[in-house]
Amino acid sequence: MHRETVENVAFRAGYLAILTFMLLPLAVVVATSFEASGQLLFPPENYSLVHYRTFFEETTWLSAFDNSLLVGTGTTVVATTLGVTAAFGHELDDGRTGQLLAPLVLVPLLIPPIILGISMRVYFVRAGLNASFLSIILAHTLWATPLVYFVMRSVFSRFDWQLLDAAKDLGAGPIQSFAYAVLPNVKHGIFVGALLAFIVSLQEFVMALFLSSHSTETIPVVAWTALRQSLDPMVSVVSTFLILISIVAIVAATVATNLEWLSKQLS
């Protein structure tokens, strides 16, 4: 065979193998949720929806879903507000405060969540916020804000600032000019940032594990506790729902922007 053909075949086989590796565990999760028996088998031997029925009857999972939704919404609101205002401020003036802000926001992402979890647990016990929803929301905000902040920095850097000056020249106040000149141009970016914040909160579990009590457990925390005891198809059912939510989020973000832009923002 010609050398180029061999290279082409090897190249294609390489990336298809990685593609399989990336999607296989998710396929296992979805497939095992349809297993009829109480064991986690792949591929399943008998298919049934029995675990889906149990899911809707079990209050532990449903209340965990509510908790996750509450924490996710709280995180989205706080992280988006903090991230958007700070990115906007940084864009207006990249003086030394701005240079201080970027690394300060970034560093928590590199510290093992277990250490953040420990330090916040100690901190919240002292502050009397232990095991409240607020403590989990604040912890998740620490991780979600950098994403919103960097997405918004890149959005604002493409924004035409003359529009803001024009709005001011025409007599608009600061809030009015932001609402009418800036917001319509950056709303897709804000939407994607908010979506990322929500997903980060929905999926995070190490900090949540350290900060939650029985009544504030989120889905990943319940799933983790369940998994440490036994491998149960119920976890697959819950995970299938989580994967579905992620797919919906990707589609929504793709409609708002496009897949390539989204990929660049996530890094």
Partner: peptide, 30 residues
């Protein structure tokens, strides 16, 4: 498709991603 295969696991919780390797890689696994 390649981008999707990167973003979907990225947005899926650690817990879910990890335990799927148990039925795949255990001594009696796939």
């Amino acid at each position: 498709a390649l981008l999707f295969s990167v973003i979907l696991p990225l947005l899926t919780t650690l817990v879910v991603k990890t335990y799927a390797f148990r039925p795949l890689l255990s001594p009696t696994g796939t």
